[in-house]
Structures are given as structure tokens and as C-alpha cells.
């Protein structure tokens, strides 16, 4: 079963251990600037949000690549950059609407999350469980539910709290009852 990174910002303390682990695993150095997962800070709200590639199904980056340097990893479902094929044209960096494919000037290539080949170090390094590697179905459903809860409402609209509603109870006959 395909797994995905489940990101839960409300559990993130902004410790950046994911960025340290990611950069070390992928470049051999502790250098958050090279991390493929980033923790975004919202200081005025006291919040942190880890964010990285969602490995989308019809990946924009993959379809936009002119030299077939971004390919589907059949084992993990991730979209991987083949750095020996990548020419560094950067079209994928503007095609990705999530901003999670980035160009690195020192290598002349683009980089993105590849789930560390199915054993993502960010989730192993996270001490608070804000990043977990779980069944893809589960992470998608919960993400949708959480988003639905805080969807922006048009100006002036009232929030829509659950209203008292008549609950229908169906009396299901008990099997083998009296």
C-alpha cells in the first residue's frame, strides 16, 4: 500500500530537526537550506507548518519536464528527479503550484522530496509526531477534513456551526432477540 507523509502543523514546535535530517540524508551535511522539507513560521500566531512535496498523482513537475528527468518511483509513488538527466532548465520549478520543486545553483539541478526511497528521515527525526509516514488514504482524508473545517468564508458570511438537527434513529431488530 502506498504511504505518504502526513503533516500535522498543530503538533510542530519548529525545532527544525526534520530539515537537519533531510539535508544530512540527501547531501551529507547538516544544512537546513538544502532541506527538501521546510518548516514555515507564523510567529505572530505562534504556529509552525512543515511542508513538502505532496507527490501528486498527475504531477505538474513531471509533465512539464522537457527531458523526462522527473519520473514516477513505482515502489513509493514519489516523483523522483534523475539528476544525471536534469539539465537545470527550471521549468518544473514554475510548473509546481505548491512551490516544492526548487533549483539549486551550486549543483545546477532541481531538487524535490523523494520520500528517501520509502524511508523518510524527516518523519523519523520528528520528535512530536508532526510528520508521520502513513497510509496515503488516511493522510488524504484527514487533510481534507481539516481543511474543510477552516475553509475561508466570503466576507461578512457567518460561520456555519453545526445546528441542532433531528436525529433519525432506525430501530434495527436484534438478531436472535427475545
Amino acid at each position: 500500500m502506498l504511504k505518504a507523509l502526513k503533516l500535522e502543523p498543530e503538533k510542530c514546535t519548529g525545532c527544525l530537526q526534520c530539515e537537519m535530517a533531510c539535508s544530512f540524508e540527501n547531501t551529507g551535511a547538516f544544512n537546513p537550506a538544502k532541506s527538501r522539507i521546510k518548516v514555515f513560521t507564523f510567529h505572530d500566531e505562534g504556529r509552525f507548518a512543515p511542508y513538502t512535496c505532496t507527490q501528486c498523482d498527475e504531477a505538474w513537475c513531471m509533465h512539464a519536464c522537457p527531458v523526462e528527468a522527473i519520473v514516477l518511483n513505482m515502489a513509493t509513488g514519489s516523483k523522483d528527479v534523475l539528476s544525471d538527466v536534469c539539465v537545470g532548465c527550471k521549468v518544473c520549478t514554475i510548473a509546481c503550484p505548491f512551490g516544492t520543486v526548487n533549483y539549486e545553483a551550486d549543483t545546477g539541478k532541481v531538487v524535490k522530496c523523494d520520500l528517501c526511497g520509502g524511508d523518510p528521515w524527516c518523519s523519523k527525526a520528528c520528535p512530536t509526531g508532526a510528520i508521520t509516514y502513513v497510509s496515503a488514504d488516511e493522510s488524504g482524508m484527514e487533510r481534507m477534513r481539516a481543511w474543510a473545517q477552516q475553509a475561508p468564508r466570503t466576507a461578512g458570511a457567518q460561520p456555519n456551526p453545526p445546528k441542532a438537527k433531528e436525529v433519525q434513529v432506525f430501530n434495527i431488530p436484534q438478531q436472535g432477540g427475545h
Partner: peptide, 9 residues
């Protein structure tokens, strides 16, 4: 070069 694609998004 960081996260420029999000403008498209």
C-alpha cells in the same frame, strides 16, 4: 529560486 512555483498556485 525558492518556492517560486507557489505564485502559479
Amino acid at each position: 529560486t525558492e518556492h517560486v512555483g507557489v505564485m502559479r498556485g
